[in-house]
Every structure is written in C-alpha cells, then in structure tokens.
Design a protein around this nucleic acid. Structure first.
Length: 593
RNA sequence: GCCCCAGUGGAGCAGUCUGGAGUGCUCAUCUCCCUGUCAAGGAGAAGGUCGCCGGUUCAAGUCCGGUCUGGGGCGCCA
C-alpha cells in the first residue's frame, strides 16, 4: 500500500513519487492551500494540498480531520529556504499531494494525541489504543522491544536455553497471595498462576539443562504501587555448577550489553554493597546512589545524653540516626512541621530537626544539648553552616532506617539534589549489587524466624554453624540489583544438599512432614542428584521504565491495570454468569451489585 | 486495613481558603474568512448532573459528614 515511511523521508527522496499511509496528526487550512502533518510509527511529515497541483486532493483535504487514517500519493520536495521546520526530523522536505484517499474516518478523539498536555490516566487507559498512538508511548514500547531483544541475543550467545514453564500451576503456601483458577475437572480444586517459575527452573537444573532463561509473566495478588502490577514480566534465569560470583558476572555483563545495545551507554562496573552497609548508610536495601545525604549514626554523639527521648531509646537498645539536608537550615516552621508529620506518617514517634548556624544550632531540643553534644553532632554529621540535620530515634532500628531513608529520597527530590536524567550519561545509571543478606528475619508478631528470600536460599559457608544457635547471624547466598533506588533483580544460589535443607526447615520451625507436604515435588527431585545451582530474576517492567526515564511501570506496559487492579479498557475483572460458575463448581458469596 | 493528593463543558487548568447567577483561560469541536503554515492565524458559535449521596445555610463548585474513582505512599509484596 505504501512505498515509504513518513518519518524516514529526507532530502534524498526529493523528486521521488511516494505513497504514504498514516494518520492526520494536525491540519492547517489556509483556504487556498492546506497542510497536514501525516503520522505513522516512524514520525511526521508535512503534506501540502495545493489546488494548482491537484484540485481534487485539495477538495478532499478540506474534509480531513484529526486522526483520519489516509493514504497520500505525492512528490517529495525540498522546502524553500525559510519554510524549513527544524523541529521536525523530516522538516527539510514536504510531500506535494497528487492523490489522497480517506482509508477510514475518525470521531473526535477523547483526548489529543499530540502529547502537549497531561491526560487523566484513567482516560488514557480506557482509550489505550489512542494513547499508544502518542510518540512517547511508542518510544517506550520500542525501547522495551530493544531491551528484550538485546537480552535474548545476550543469553543466546551465552548458551542459555529459553524454555517455557506452566501458567496453570500449584498454589504455594508462602509468599505473595496467589491468583487462583478454579478447576472444572477436579471439583473444589484450583490452579494458581505463577508468582515466579522458581521451582520449575530449579527442576530444569536437576534435569541437567544447565543454563535456562525465560522472559515470562508472573502474577501476584498484592496491592499495587508505581513499580508493581498484578501481572508483570520477569527475566528469569538459572545456572548449574555456579556460585555467587558466576551469577553476578553473567548478570552484570548482561545489563552492560543491554544498556550498550538499547541505549548506547557503556555502563561502569556495578557498585557492591553488603546489606548491612546499605542499611547503615542509606537505611534501605535499595539505595539511590545518585546523591549523597548518607545517614549518620548518632548513638555515640548522644551516648551520655539527658534528653529524655534519646536516653530512653538508647537504654532500650534502639538507634539514633540522622540525615543532613544541605542548605536547608533556614527552613520555615511550617515546612519543618510538615517534615515532622511526614516522619510520623512513615512510622516515627517524632522527628528532631537541627538547623546548623554559624555559632549556634536552631532546634527545639537545643537547650537540652550539652556543649560537647553540639560539637559532636556537627562533627559526626559533617554538617556545614546552613545545613539542616534531621534526627530520628526509636527503639526499633528498622523504624529509624525506614523513616530516614524515606525522608532522604523525598527531600532529595524536593530540593533537586538528584541530577536530571541524561540517559546517554553513564553516571546516570548507578547500579549496585546488594549482597550478604541475612538468611533469617525475626518476625515479632509471630515470634519466630522467617526467611527473607525463599526457603531454598543457600547459606554462606561458615555462617551455617549459627543455624540452630543464632539464626540472625546466618548469611544467605542471595543478591539484589538496585538501580537509582529501585530493586531491579533478586536471586540466590540455592541449597542442593538435602541435609542442609532439612536443617533450614527446622530452623524455620517447619517439620519434615510439613516441608514434604508443601514442596514435595522439589524435594523429591532433589533425591536424584541435584547439581549446585543458582539464578536471578530481574524485573523487565522496572528495567524498561528506568531506562525510559519513567517513574512508573504502567508507562512501559501496553495494557496495564489501575491501582485497584482494574482494566478500564476491557472492564476486567467482570461478572460471569451463573452457568460459568457452576461449571467450575463455584458459587459467589459477594453481595449482589 | 491506614495516611496524603486529586475529581469543574470533549481535553488540560483557574475558581474552593474568605458561600452570593456556571464565571474565566488554553486546546479540541462546528460555521465563515484566509496560498506557506508547521501546537498556523482571524471572526463567530455550540458545548456543564462542578464525581456521587446526605447535611448546614435564605443561598453550596465553595463549608461539614460519608462514599466512589484515579494517583502517591505505609502495611502487604518468599
């Protein structure tokens, strides 16, 4: 139907007769002569309808409206000096229309496609097919394709096999809430959609398939966030006869290769932080390394304090930490109160602010500080005159970290301390490995040890001795990748030794029978010579969103869902009729709408 | 489950604090004018359940309570 693509036309085609298809992006009617910008997936080109060239085409052009789908036949002409449009890739040329055909007409769209104004996201999702006409969305999806195809080329070259795993599988007891699918042929039973192909990929290793990867949908029925959708895409991979360094190596090379191919950027080697160090310095295991404002431990500064809240926290074995906000020491009372409220919203009992001035400190607690404490506080935080120190104290170290980590990123955004994204700048991409996670985490509510990663996570050799005596000291062979404050990937070397696996289950308070009941097929498989193995699973949606400079993953998913897991386009989830329910042996207990 | 922000012609906003006629702006739509614009321009027109329910008031887009939807976050997410 067409001979050329709109966005690819240039001076080289001057004089050629071309056939173009696309949508009417904009129309400028001068009465005597009419211009349109014709749009296809490659871009825009100006088409001129001049009655001196074609009376008939000029007449049809009067009828054209935005988003009409048309075909134009005409001659490519270089534009006269002064009429070149430098804002358009094809601005040096235009197409003089000889023939035009309306392929299909369009109603006035619910919002404009030109991208000049933000549109309510609900509306964009309801009319996603129109939203996806916008250049920004097409660029996002093209980048997604470039990244995914670069990933496949990389793993192909490394000798990995892409193998599919079932979507209808067994519900696993731990982890996220499952999406369930009722069985018709087995009344009262359910499949679950996979939260990840974790167990299947481990079985591939038992099978000797050695190096597996898959770009695969995963499903988790949990509440949504900017970086979380109920269905999302993982790059799942697993390798045999490897230890931690092998997985880190291949994964890091993969990311470098992808950034090179998709963005043309040579990434620096990834930073490496232990979990402990990350928490200490940034209060989180997904630190944004693009700016400073590292947390300071102030327990020593206030070791002998008489300030009641601090004294109580220290005596209870808690923590006092601070974060220094550059040049905000003179912040007004209203803003400071708002910060206190933010800290409380994040879970803190309160927030102490300290404005650092040349000779003095400005703080509600200043009168309770000793001279030594004032000096030590300045020194410990390395604060300069004019800075603002925010101090959080709590008997739970985790609360202190969470609150300060939250304030750190929010304030960095608010005060523009994060460099504006330049996607071609290698420094814009602060990848980091987070390693040496603790294996266990104390669950206060249930009063037991829980796993942090999953129950098959390997253990760093000499820490296994604490499995029974002091589980908190056991370090796992798990690792995360973080990029600019987002968790991008998570993985581990797995336990392949049955005895070790049993010790771990016991430490978790899971009996042998219970373990067998829950994970029978994996444990059975491990009777038959499982190789040492491990892997990782980076999130594709997050990778693409970050690479595209987007702040939520919906922008890089063609048909995403809203925060309540609703799809405004299809109306899913929807009611089904009684007959459908009966077939799968279900009856709804939901109130009739 | 909880906290915060938003909801006003088709789209994006202002108006809400401090109640007084659906007031205004930009874009789109429709009619007319216009042969070099490029987010064209000019003249005119049409288009409204101020998310929904209730309350206060002589009077509510505006105040109060509730609720729904969207977004951000906490919890949750091995």
């Amino acid at each position: 139907m067409r001979s050329h693509l709109c966005g690819r036309l240039g001076a080289e085609q001057a004089g050629e007769r071309v056939e173009l298809c696309g949508w009417v992006h904009t129309r400028r009617d001068h009465g005597g002569v009419t211009f349109i910008d014709l749009r296809d997936t490659t871009g825009l080109v100006q088409v001129v309808f001049n009655p001196e060239i074609s009376e008939r085409s000029h007449e049809v052009a009067q009828d054209l409206r935005g988003e009409f789908c048309i075909k134009v036949v005409g001659e490519v002409r270089t534009r006269k000096a002064g009429t070149v449009n430098p804002n358009l890739g094809t601005g040096e040329v235009e197409v003089a229309a000889q023939e035009v055909e309306i392929l299909s007409r369009a109603e006035t769209p619910p919002f404009q496609v030109d991208g000049h104004q933000e549109v309510d996201e609900m509306l964009r999702l309801r009319y996603r097919y129109i939203d996806l006409r916008r250049e920004e969305m097409q660029e996002n999806l093209k980048l997604r394709h470039a990244i995914v195809s670069a990933i496949r080329r990389f793993f192909d070259a490394e000798g990995f096999l892409e193998i599919e795993t079932p979507m209808l599988t067994r519900s696993t007891p731990e982890g996220a809430r499952d999406y369930l699918v009722p069985s018709r042929s087995h009344p009262g039973t359910f499949y679950a959609l996979p939260q990840s192909p974790q167990l299947f990929k481990q079985l591939f290793m038992v099978s000797g398939l050695d190096r597996y990867y898959q770009i695969v949908k995963c499903f988790r029925d949990e509440d949504l966030r900017a970086d979380r959708q109920p269905e999302f895409t993982q790059l799942d991979l697993e390798m045999s006869f490897v230890d931690v360094e092998d997985v880190l190596d291949v994964t890091e090379r993969m990311f470098k290769s992808v950034w090179k191919e998709a963005l043309g950027v040579e990434l620096a080697d990834f930073t490496r932080l232990t979990y402990g160090e990350s928490l200490q310095r940034f209060g989180t295991d997904k630190p944004d390394l693009r700016f400073g404002m590292e947390l300071t431990d102030l327990s020593d500064v206030f070791a002998a304090t008489e300030v009641k809240v601090f004294r109580g926290v220290l005596d209870a074995g808690g923590a006092i930490k601070g974060v220094t906000v550059p040049r905000q020491g003179a912040l007004g009372r209203k803003d400071l109160d708002a910060l206190v409220d933010q800290a409380k919203a994040l879970g803190a009992g309160g927030l102490v602010w300290v404005g650092v001035e040349a000779e003095t400190l400005r703080s509600p607690l200043d009168k309770f500080f000793t001279a030594d404490e004032r000096v030590a506080l300045r020194k410990a935080t390395d604060a300069s005159d004019g800075d603002l120190i925010l101090v959080v104290a709590d008997k739970r170290v985790s609360v202190v970290n969470k609150v300060l980590a939250g304030l750190r990123t929010r304030l960095a955004e608010r005060f523009d301390l994060i460099p504006k994204l330049d996607r071609s700048d290698p420094d814009a991409w602060r990848f980091a490995w987070i390693v040496d996670f603790p294996w266990f985490e104390w669950n206060d509510d249930e009063e037991r040890w829980d796993f942090i990663h999953h129950p098959f996570t390997g253990i760093v050799g000499d820490t296994a001795q604490y499995l029974e005596s002091d589980p908190g000291k056991v370090i796992s062979k798990s690792y995360d990748i973080t990029l600019n404050g987002w968790e991008l990937a998570s993985g581990s070397i797995r336990i392949h030794d049955r005895e070790m696996q049993q010790r771990v289950f016991r430490a978790l308070g899971i009996s042998d029978e219970e373990a067998q009941e829950k994970f029978s097929f994996l444990l059975d498989a491990f009777k038959y010579g499982p190789p040492p193995h491990g892997g990782i699973a980076p999130g594709i949606d997050r990778i693409v969103a970050l690479a595209a400079g987007q702040t939520n993953i919906r922008e890089v998913i063609a048909f995403p869902k809203t925060q309540t897991a609703f799809d405004p386009l299809t109306g899913a989830p929807s009611q089904v009729d009684e007959a459908q329910l009966k077939v799968v042996h279900l009856r709804s207990t939901a109130p009739k709408p």
